[in-house]
């Protein structure tokens, strides 16, 4: 049983400006899809629509399991997650931030403890477990966001510009985390970045958004 995402002929406008023009794509292979393109090209809008955070003006977003379309409900929403550029830190500890997704799903006690520890270890924040989350640096905050999403074991994980507001050192750490996800192949990861070099470093499949139009770009994997 694996979840796949199909978008068909999506168009969207803001204040009369067409941001997305007839975008279609099928995301079905586990691995990293990177959507790149200049700022303002419509990448984030596309991602928010795919993650069911916004409705498109036209077109369809469909999630399928073994080819069968799924209803858009809370059960489906809990199988996907979107990491926003500003992650929205809850004013509590790092541990409780990461535990949030599990608590609202009804998990309790040692299951939460184990899974949160694992997620924090994965992003290298286990030593900051009891620290107030709002006191983390920008880079650490971004890693917290990744841990908070990963702990829920999403089948499709959207990341919107995960390194846009962090320094070079933390960008490397976040890229390493994404490369670890790439190696694990546990889920479909769809991320946006305006940095072409980064896109080529991380992607299994590279998509380009140009003036609201989506296309796939073939590229040579480094090394």
């Amino acid at each position: 049983m694996s979840l796949e995402l199909r978008v068909a002929n999506i168009s969207n406008s803001y204040d009369g400006n067409r941001v997305l023009k007839d975008c279609s794509f099928s995301f079905h292979d586990r691995g990293i899809y990177v959507l790149t393109g200049p700022n303002g090209s419509g990448k984030s809008t596309f991602l928010r629509i795919c993650a069911l955070l916004e409705k498109p003006d036209k077109g369809e977003v469909g999630f399928l399991e073994d080819g069968i379309p799924l209803h858009e409900n809370i059960q489906l929403q809990r199988r996907i997650t979107l990491l926003l550029p500003k992650i929205g830190v809850f004013n509590t500890t790092v541990f409780k931030n990461v535990a949030y997704g599990l608590k609202i799903r009804g998990f309790r006690g040692s299951i939460i403890e184990d899974r949160v520890d694992k997620a924090l270890d994965f992003v290298g924040l286990i030593h900051k477990k009891q620290q107030k989350a709002l006191t983390l640096s920008s880079g650490e905050t971004q890693r917290l966001g990744i841990a908070r999403a990963l702990v829920t074991e999403p089948e499709i994980f959207f990341l919107d510009e995960p390194t846009a507001s962090i320094d070079h050192k933390n960008t490397e750490i976040v890229e390493d985390i994404i490369l670890k996800m790439k190696k694990d192949r546990r889920s479909i990861v769809i991320m946006t970045t305006h940095d072409i070099a980064q896109a080529e470093r991380l992607a299994d499949r590279l998509l380009v958004m140009q003036d609201g139009k989506l296309s796939e770009k073939s590229f040579c994997l480094p090394g």
Partner: peptide, 15 residues
Amino acid sequence: VKPIIRQAAVTLGAT
């Protein structure tokens, strides 16, 4: 409370 908090909760699967 910043709107981003609600968005974060929703993206993490909150009803």
